[in-house]
Design a protein around this nucleic acid. Structure first.
Lengths: 339, 339
DNA sequence: CTGAAAGCGCTTACAG
DNA sequence: CTGAAAGCGCTTACAG
């Protein structure tokens, strides 16, 4: 038995018009609730459309309206850790508007990026959302002179563009304040490389909140660095921290594991907070991690609605839009969620 | 300063024809390398097109050709653990054919699924790839009578459909054989719930390879279950396993952590193999996990090319297509990669 | 209140 | 060798 694309004939507006006994023009107006006509006629057409299962051909419509009801999401985050929540938000916001989303993953390959952008433009996307894995790097393709609006989410863009990022400083402050509120006195920040803008923003906010004496250790974004940092902190005879704010959940997991291996009780002896609220890591840690959530889904929603508004010709204020982070309370600090 | 979609006028074939001093019909034929004409004319048109940066409007073309050069990827795997590699393969295979991919995540919501499918059909997708997170469950939407071809990848589909899955039995056999080859004598399989078809397939293959005496423990897909299983296995006085094949990498990570906490050396005393080769888990485990990779990217590539072939009207054999798994050797077993 | 005509940006027989 | 005409499936002034 062989399988072949069954040539199901699609219903055109012509078929609907025929069935309802009206012209194609009238059928179109009836279905779009435009023009003036006898209510009875409109009803008859609509019934015929439903009966026949008519769905208008978006390509034909698009040719006229110059709207394709598609947008493209371009990303260099192949792992999808940031892209997926973003995509979920975009999709959720746009599906109600009948907009579908092309996903294009481009590693860091400029040629591939160009190919994908061109393919999307050929398909007349209404707009493009550029996204990445860090807010201080750009995608390897220039999108400043495209015939469609571009919005940047979790990636850098030109000065006159709209860029959505999460509020690293606020997230960091919230984390430190949470531990201080729980009575912790000796906070330490164990985080990623200084080359990341968000590392700097968080570190600064951490210092402001925990005091300039509070130590900050920079390393890689890995569990291994979490282990290593604990080895350093517990190595000498210096006073040990009782609260550790980590730059991401993987570091936090390493820290928690290392502390347990040293017989240090989390959260009794030390509170630990992570960053990213990456479910798979945060929930599997023993105890589960209290972590800062960047609300990437909400960020995606905003980015989607904004690019859509621009596609509809609405005026939009350029600049960086910081969306708030939220502390997700689990068991690694003690304390209980406020809400 | 306000930002508005700059109304860049797009170049139409009419502009190219004008610039080259030919008719639109001739321009079309020149650019598509069809028809007969003076080579000089063709060149002139092509040069004009390049100079003006002409890119044909895919909607207009699609209206004629009934091809949109888009496909949809429908999935209920919100976490993206299976979808992302699949998507990468699909995209990689199709970008060369000028095909872009709509990604639609539908949780398990039938209403949402229908909305997405309809939206894609309206946009005249050339085909749909249905995907999921287990091969024995279907998406909550019937796609048997669509006007476009549908291919199933890592999800169940109707009997007369094309379904791509990875070869669980072969992956399982390879894992067991690898440990046997390293001299392990007392293998155990710690895996997920029996309700999963792939759990059964792997368990059966494991028994065939390791012997029917080899124990199989079923639990959840979590690190916690890995810990628990080790507690059971090391609990009594029974002979302890020297090789543990885990149903996924999370279980394997739990097993490895639990063994270390008991002072059991991995890989010296016990070999551990995971399943999924989920980089983030496998690489962070101490020691890093040897794991079975399902080659989801290759699976995506196949699925993409197949749905494209069907869209082009080619005959395709229905049925289940099992693609081989591959053992990725790291340090949790001892032994060294063959290649 | 309804329909004929023109047109969106292309391609493809067909005529010259 | 080249172009005028028709048409893909719609929508939208415009005429009646």
């Amino acid at each position: 038995m062989e399988l072949q694309a069954k040539k199901v004939e699609r219903i055109r507006i012509y078929d609907v018009a025929l069935a309802a006994g009206v012209s194609v023009a009238t059928a179109s107006k009836a279905l779009n609730d435009t023009g003036r006509m006898a209510p009875e006629t409109r009803d008859r057409v609509k019934r015929a459309a439903v009966e026949l299962g008519f769905r208008p051909n978006a390509m034909a419509r698009g040719l006229l309206s110059k709207r394709s009801f598609t947008v493209g999401l371009l990303t260099n985050d192949t792992y999808g850790r940031f892209t997926l929540p973003l995509m979920a938000g975009i999709s959720e916001a746009l599906v109600d508007h009948g907009v579908s989303v092309f996903l294009c993953t481009i590693e860091d390959d400029p040629t591939l990026a160009k190919i994908h952008v061109d393919a999307m433009l050929d398909k007349q996307v209404d707009g493009i959302i550029a996204s990445g894995k860090r807010i201080d790097r750009r995608l390897p393709v220039d999108m400043t002179h495209l015939p469609v609006p571009v919005v940047y989410a979790f990636t850098d863009g030109p000065d006159d563009s709209v860029r959505f990022v999460s509020d690293d400083a606020q997230g960091s402050r919230d984390a430190a304040q949470w531990m201080i509120g729980l009575g912790r006195k000796r906070l330490v920040h164990v985080t990623g490389p200084t080359s990341f803008a968000s590392v700097q923003a968080r570190a600064e906010a951490f210092s402001d909140t925990a005091g300039s004496g509070a130590k900050i250790l920079h390393g890689t974004w890995s569990e291994a660095w979490g282990h290593e940092a604990v080895a350093q902190l517990w190595g000498g005879d210096r006073p040990r921290p009782d609260g550790i704010f980590c730059g991401n959940d993987q570091i936090a997991r390493g820290v928690v594991d290392a502390l347990r291996e040293r017989g240090v009780d989390v959260p009794r002896d030390v509170s630990v907070v992570g960053f990213d609220n990456w479910e798979i890591v945060a929930a599997a840690t023993r105890p589960p991690l209290t972590s800062v959530d960047m609300n990437l889904k909400a960020l995606g929603r905003e980015a989607g609605l904004t690019v859509l508004a621009m596609a509809e010709g609405k005026q939009v204020e350029p600049g960086i839009r910081k969306l708030p982070c939220r502390l997700i309370v689990r068991q690694s600090c003690g304390g209980v969620a406020a809400d």
